[in-house]
Each structure stands twice: as structure tokens, then as C-alpha cells.
């Protein structure tokens, strides 16, 4: 499986370039254009990273996070979720950039290849900011009755978090 995932990225890059060349696109110019967007995205994220890292580091260095993890582990053990993941699972549906910063912090603290780091990365990559999406899409149309659309969205979130934990533990 490791071999497959080593192959995925080079293969995808090659396919994109081959299709581009076949359709006579200026692949290099397009690439440079898009890369500029990458700079913008990262620096848009920068202030959020500062804010969240500051808070989480204070939470950790004060020892408060160990205290909270101990208290909450009774609940998380029910679902087999490591309590270190809990802050991420809570912020994930509310704030996209906030949860990204928390996931990054978890990966940095426990190591990107550790079990917990991998789970955090998977949760990060496997769903969107649920409440934000619902609010945005609901604001487009003038409906009063959401027909409880939030329920399947939350169930889906839980399913992907739990499957990440099961698969990686």
C-alpha cells in the first residue's frame, strides 16, 4: 500500500501534464498563474495559524489540556476516539481555518506519522466545515424550513471521523 501511495502523486502530475500537452495548452504559464494563488492561500491562512497556535500552546503548556483530556476521556472512550483528537472534532464543523490550525498543531506535537497525527490529518482532509456550508447554502434561497438537513450532515461527519479512527488504530 505504501508503494501505491508513493506512486499516486507522480502519476497524477504526469497525467495532468500529458493531457495539457495533448490539448496544446501553455502548461508552464498556467502552472505559474495557479502557483500565485498558492501564495495567497497560505498567507490568508497565516493570521489564523497564529491565533490558534497561540491558544493551543497556552492550553498545553499550562497543563490544562491534560486535565481536560482526563475528564473527557470517559466520554471519548465510549466512541473509541483518542481524547487528544477531541478539540479538532469539536472545532471541525464550525471553523475551517481554525480546525486546520488545530490539526496542524496536533501533527506537529505528536508527529505527522504518529497514530494521532494521522487521524488528525484524515479528519482534516475528509470533510468540509459543515455548519458554514449549511449556513452559506441556506442563505442563497429564502426558505424557512430546512427539513432537518443538519442531521444527515452531522451523521456523515461522525461516520467519517469514526472510520478514520478505526482504520488508523
Amino acid at each position: 500500500m505504501n508503494y501505491i501511495s508513493t506512486m499516486i502523486i507522480p502519476i497524477i502530475i504526469s497525467i495532468i501534464l500529458l493531457v495539457g500537452l495533448k490539448e496544446k495548452k501553455k502548461v508552464y504559464d498556467l502552472f505559474i498563474d495557479g502557483a500565485k494563488e498558492g501564495v495567497k492561500v497560505t498567507f490568508r491562512l497565516f493570521p489564523t495559524l497564529i491565533g490558534i497556535f497561540l491558544a493551543i500552546h497556552m492550553l498545553r503548556s499550562s497543563g490544562l489540556i491534560d486535565f481536560l483530556s482526563n475528564v473527557l476521556s470517559n466520554v471519548t472512550n465510549l466512541f473509541n476516539i483518542p481524547s487528544e483528537i477531541l478539540p479538532l472534532a469539536i472545532i471541525k464543523p464550525i471553523s475551517g481555518s481554525g480546525s486546520m490550525a488545530i490539526a496542524t498543531d496536533i501533527m506537529a506535537h505528536f508527529g505527522p506519522d504518529s497514530n494521532i497525527g494521522m487521524i488528525a490529518a484524515t479528519i482534516m482532509g475528509s470533510s468540509e466545515t459543515t455548519f458554514y456550508v449549511i449556513a452559506l447554502y441556506m442563505s442563497v434561497v429564502k426558505v424557512k424550513d430546512s427539513r432537518k438537513v443538519v442531521i444527515p450532515a452531522i451523521i456523515a461527519d461522525l461516520a467519517s471521523i469514526i472510520s478514520a479512527v478505526i482504520f488508523l488504530s
Binding site: L17, G20, E23, F31, D33, G34, A35, K36, V39
Partner: peptide, 13 residues
Amino acid sequence: CLWCGLMEIVKNT
């Protein structure tokens, strides 16, 4: 930058 660049190519094919 790498990914945004590649995705820009995808968008145009």
C-alpha cells in the same frame, strides 16, 4: 503553490 499550479492546468483542459 505546486498544487494550485497543477490544478490551474486541470481547469483549462
